Simulated assay, not measured.
Amino acid sequence: MARGRTGEGASPVALFSPARFAFYRFMFAGFARKHLRAVRVANWGLPPPDDSSRPLVVYANHPSWWDGVAFMLYSTELFPGRRMFIPMEAEALKRYGFMTRIGVFGVEQQSARGAVAFLRTAKAVLAEPGAMLWMNAPGRFMDVRERPVPMAPGLVRLAEYAPDVRFLPMAIEYPFWSERSAEMLCGFGTPIDGAALAALDREPRGEALARALEATMDRLAEDAVARDPARFRPVIRGREGMGGIYERWRHVSAVARGKPFDPRHDPSVGGNA
C-alpha cells in the first residue's frame, strides 16, 4: 500500500484529505457555474461500466488551464466510487500547495530521476483499492487540432509497471457556441487493457495510446462543431445571457410587456439542455 507518514515525502494517498477534496470540489463547481455555460459529457462518450476492482488511468489531451477543474468535476460525477490522483509539474505545484491535499503530486519533468519517481509513485497509488490516476497525456498545453498528439514517456512506460491497469482515453474541449461563456465538453473512448499495452514495444505502445486518444478527440470535435446541446448530457449548468445591467433591463422589460424572459443570445439553439 502507498500509505505512509504525512510529512514531507509522504505519498499522495497519505496526504489526501476527503474533507478538503469535498470542499474544493464544491468551490470548483461554483466556479464552473459562474464562468461556463455548461459542463457536458457526450452521449456516446460516457465511460463504460467501471470495474472498481481494477486500477484505472484516465489520460486526456491538454487544451487549457481548465483541465484540472474538468478532472475534478467529471471524476466525482462519473466515477463516484473512486478516488482520483493527478500528477502535476513540480514547479507549478509549488504555487498551489493546497492541491497536495486533494490528490495532486509533483513530477519533475525532463529528467530521468523525475520519470523514475513518477512511475514509482503512480504504481503505489494505483495499488490502492479504488484509486485512479488522471493525467494530461501530452505533458504540455496543446491545441485540440494539433496532430499527432504526443504521449508523455511516463504514460507510455506505466503499463510496464502496472499491467493490470485499464487505460481510458478522454477528450476535452472548451468551445464557444452562441453564448458569452464557453462550454466544457468531454467524451471517453474505449478502454485499453494494460497487459495488451505492456506486451508491445514502447514505440508502438505510444502509438496505440495516441491513436485511441486522437479518435476520441476527433469524435468529440464533430459534436463541438455541431453546436447541439442535445448531443450531450449536462453535468453542471452554468450561466446564459449577457448578465449585468443590460440583461436585468431586458428582464424587467419583458415582464412589463407580459412576455416570458429568455436570457439566451440565440434561443433557437436548444437551451442549456
Rank of each mutant, 00 (worst) to 15 (best):
L56T: 03
L56R: 04
L56A: 02
L56K: 03
V57M: 09
V57R: 02
V58R: 09
V58H: 07
Y59D: 02
Y59R: 04
Y59Q: 03
A60E: 02
A60V: 05
A60N: 04
N61T: 05
N61D: 05
N61F: 10
H62R: 05
H62P: 00
P63M: 14
P63T: 11
P63Q: 12
S64M: 10
S64W: 11
S64H: 10
W65M: 08
W65R: 07
W65D: 06
W66K: 03
D67R: 04
D67I: 10
D67H: 10
D67P: 09
G68L: 11
V69K: 06
V69L: 15
V69N: 08
V69Y: 13
A70T: 02
F71I: 01
F71M: 03
M72T: 01
M72W: 13
L73H: 05
L73W: 08
Y74N: 04
Y74L: 15
Y74E: 09
S75L: 10
S75N: 15
S75C: 15
S75M: 14
T76V: 15
T76H: 15
T76E: 15
T76M: 14
T76D: 15
T76L: 13
E77S: 15
L78Y: 09
L78V: 13
P80A: 14
G81H: 14
R83V: 15
M84V: 15
M84S: 15
M84L: 15
M84D: 09
M84R: 13
F85Q: 01
I86E: 10
I86R: 07
P87N: 14
P87G: 13
M88A: 13
M88W: 09
E89T: 00
E89H: 05
E89Q: 05
E91R: 14
A92T: 07
A92W: 09
A92I: 07
A92D: 06
L93W: 12
L93V: 10
L93Q: 10
L93P: 05
K94G: 08
R95C: 01
Y96C: 11
F98K: 02
F98G: 06
M99Q: 02
T100Q: 15
T100Y: 08
T100W: 07
R101C: 03
R101T: 04
I102N: 03
I102L: 05
I102F: 10
I102S: 00
G103Q: 04
V104I: 08
V104D: 02
V104S: 03
V104C: 11
F105D: 02
F105Q: 02
G106T: 04
V107T: 02
V107L: 12
V107K: 01
E108M: 05
E108Y: 00
Q109T: 05
Q109R: 09
Q110Y: 07
Q110G: 11
Q110W: 06
Q110T: 01
Q110R: 12
S111I: 05
S111H: 02
S111Q: 01
A112H: 03
A112G: 01
A112Y: 00
R113H: 09
R113Q: 11
R113M: 07
R113C: 00
R113F: 10
R113D: 04
G114A: 09
G114I: 06
G114L: 12
A115P: 00
A115Y: 03
A115T: 01
A115M: 14
A115S: 06
V116H: 06
V116S: 10
V116T: 06
V116Y: 12
V116D: 11
A117F: 12
A117V: 11
A117C: 13
F118A: 03
L119V: 07
L119D: 04
L119A: 06
L119E: 06
R120T: 14
R120S: 15
T121V: 12
T121M: 13
